[in-house]
């Protein structure tokens, strides 16, 4: 199975990147995780043309080709970082590759709560009509005190947290397989891709 692991920050060092790298290594037997970065994407500015800049198109193609996406988000001011929000806005505004795409949210933060509020926001965001991702329910993988969470080899030091992640990963792989069965070439796909906020309020929807 092919997955994209999206690093939810533009920071040069990130425990969320570390978390994805850990998953990439440890779950290599069951899934091939490609890590995608957002650091070099332009800032979203709602241009008149709805054409994706090259770097967004590349990310979008990568997501389209994958069976599912894992987003690892930090928490900045009780929400997701602006850089991640900007990447999502681009995708929603241009190519919309996340429609019907299975997504698992994980997050690492330096504080105790481990991104719970950012994850709740991200869930709501990904369910907006122009994104319509299939966010995996019932899973909330929160890695608190993330600066202390990994050893020098990049392994999780807390075995309970490692087991929890392995279980969540298994559940996600099942979720991807299941959703594939129920959404073959979804008939709303095309319609969703044409969704526009201006349109619904013009009463044309």
């Amino acid at each position: 199975m092919k997955l994209v692991g999206l690093v939810g920050t533009n920071a040069t060092t990130s425990t969320n990147r570390q978390l994805l790298q850990y998953m990439q290594q440890h779950f290599a037997a069951t899934a091939q995780i490609e890590i995608a970065e957002i650091a070099d994407l332009p800032a979203f500015n709602e241009p008149e043309s709805h054409v994706a800049p090259d770097s967004i198109q590349a990310l979008s193609d990568q997501i389209k080709a994958a069976d599912g996406v894992i987003v690892a988000t930090p928490e900045y001011d009780h929400s997701i970082p602006a850089a991640l929000k900007s990447a999502i806005e681009w995708l929603s505004y241009t190519t919309r590759p996340l429609i019907n795409k299975p997504v698992m949210i994980v997050g690492a933060s330096n504080g105790a709560l481990g991104t719970s509020r950012a994850q709740a926001h991200l869930r709501q965001i990904l369910e907006a009509p122009e994104l319509k991702a299939l966010v995996m329910p019932n899973v909330e993988y929160l890695l608190g005190h993330s600066l202390q969470a990994f050893d020098d080899q990049g392994n999780l030091t807390d075995t309970d947290k490692a087991t929890e992640l392995a279980n969540d990963m298994t559940a996600f792989l099942d979720f991807v397989t299941l959703t594939k069965k129920i959404t073959p070439e979804n008939k709303f796909m095309e319609k969703n891709q044409q969704f526009s906020w201006r349109q619904i309020t013009d009463g044309r929807d």
Binding site: A43, F44, N45, Y76, D77, S79, I80, P81, A82, A83, K85, S86, I88, E89, S92, H121, Q124, I125, E127, A128, E130, L131
Partner: peptide, 11 residues
């Protein structure tokens, strides 16, 4: 934007 604040404002 997408059920939340625009990235520019968040930034």
């Amino acid at each position: 934007h997408n059920h939340s604040v625009p990235s520019a404002l968040k930034s």
